[in-house]
């Protein structure tokens, strides 16, 4: 455990040093993560105002809080590994990772968390500024805040495992861009990023409930908004755990097959 701590410390230090080297690129990425939810916020807020102050059971303020929370949760859980893997395999960089006596996922996790912590220094004040600008009011219960920490952690891990697993499709095809694009559209739709899932027809909500995406994003956001009962919280955590375990097993299975495949066509 101490050894892992030391390894992660090393990875964090490297990740931060690299991020500092590419400050502008980091800010551009960050800007994308802010603009997208801000756009939806403005659109839905306007729609709600024009419809007499609400759409469904989402009032104007609910939309504001929803998208600010979505911005933070998405920031906390998003990965860029699917773009990275493709490059990594095509350029043969994966070999260097395979020679190390540690699973390559660890450096990716550390890299991801390092970036998140660094950019939180910009994103946190941005969220506060947006809340002030849009007059957001938010009064969370203590238990939802307490539950949010493990829920966000589970959401991060399950999203990480699944996207790392999907990224490994690059072992089988050298053109994964199209698959990545399709995946991001599906996530956008079924995770609640485009619009709160409660506003979709029932059939979409049912499909979203059996897919992993809402448990990655909408679920932690709804928890923060105080829209969940303790029972719904437990069901959500159960769903997260199910998808986390399924993601972990898929990752192991596909990793093994992927390595063999990688080895077969020449590392």
């Amino acid at each position: 455990m101490t050894a892992f701590f030391s390894i992660y410390k090393g990875y964090f230090r490297t990740a931060l040093a690299i991020q500092f080297q590419y400050r502008i690129a980091m800010l551009i990425w960050l800007l994308g993560g802010i603009i997208e939810p801000l756009m939806y916020l403005v659109v839905w807020r306007t729609v709600a105002q024009q419809q007499g102050g609400a759409v469904g059971d989402y009032a104007v303020n609910d939309f504001v809080v929803y998208y600010i929370a979505m911005m933070l949760v998405n920031h906390g859980t998003f990965t860029w590994i699917m773009w990275e893997y493709d490059h990594r395999i095509r350029m043969g960089q994966f070999s260097a990772l395979l020679l190390k006596p540690i699973h390559p996922i660890h450096s990716d996790i550390a890299d991801n968390i390092g970036y998140k912590f660094l950019t939180l220094t910009v994103l946190g004040p941005t969220a506060a500024l947006l809340a002030w600008f849009f007059n957001a009011t938010w009064q969370p219960d203590l238990w939802t805040l307490a539950a949010f920490v493990p829920v966000l952690f589970l959401a991060f891990l399950m999203r990480f495992f699944w996207e790392w697993t999907l990224a490994m499709l690059a072992f089988w095809t050298t053109r994964v861009d199209a698959i990545n694009q399709a995946y991001f559209v599906i996530v956008l739709f079924f995770s609640g990023r485009l619009a709160p899932l409660d506003l979709f027809p029932q059939v979409v909500q049912s499909v979203a409930a059996i897919l992993p995406f809402r448990w990655m994003l909408a679920f932690p956001v709804e928890l923060l908004l105080g829209r969940l009962t303790p029972g719904e919280l437990l069901i959500g955590i159960g769903a997260q755990l199910f998808w986390l375990i399924a993601g972990y097993l898929s990752l192991q299975l596909i990793y093994r097959a992927g390595i063999r495949r990688y080895a077969a066509f020449g590392a």
Binding site: A3, R13, T14, Q21, A96, I102
Partner: peptide, 23 residues
């Protein structure tokens, strides 16, 4: 020439990283 060293950081930092990874 493309195995060990991390491109953007000083060489000694890669050494430090290897120290941790190889325990």
């Amino acid at each position: 020439q493309r195995n060990q060293l991390v491109w953007d950081i000083p060489v000694i930092d890669t050494f430090e990283l290897n120290r941790a990874v190889y325990r």
